[in-house]
């Protein structure tokens, strides 16, 4: 903090004193993003500056951060899509299997009857 900028804040117009406080560090990185990388939209506003590289290589837990509704909606859509894909495949399979089992039983009965019919005249 050797060359940190200092700012003055007058706490109240009538106060006979002033408090000198250091300027807050920038909350956004000054490093340029890689080509083709969009800045994250609607982040939770972490006060710790970080590089774009760190953002793509680790996940950290937030300490009481606020969440945005759009993120919740996107997450809900994602989970709904996952289970929709799964249940669609499972239900389609179960329905087809029931049809096939019924067909299999019908065919087996028909074949057994036909064999029985064919066997009778010989005996």
């Amino acid at each position: 903090m050797g060359d940190a900028q200092l700012t003055t804040q007058v706490l109240a117009p009538e106060a006979p004193w002033v408090v000198i406080v250091p300027a807050a560090p920038p909350t956004t990185p000054s490093v340029a993003l890689p080509v083709g990388t969009a800045a994250p939209v609607g982040t939770t506003g972490s006060a710790v500056p970080e590089s774009p590289v760190a953002r793509t290589t680790e996940f950290r837990a937030v300490e009481g951060g606020n969440e945005m509704q759009s993120g919740t909606a996107l997450m809900t859509e994602a989970y709904a899509a996952i289970w929709l894909c799964t249940f669609a495949l499972v239900l389609a399979g179960v329905r087809k299997m029931k049809k096939l089992e019924a067909r299999l039983e019908g065919l087996a009965d028909e074949i057994a009857r036909a064999r029985e019919r064919d066997a009778k005249p010989r005996s």
Partner: peptide, 15 residues
């Protein structure tokens, strides 16, 4: 916990 930078949408990652 909720992820620090992305928020709740990061929970998509777990699936």
């Amino acid at each position: 916990p909720t992820e620090a930078t992305m928020g709740i949408v990061q929970k998509i990652f777990y699936f």
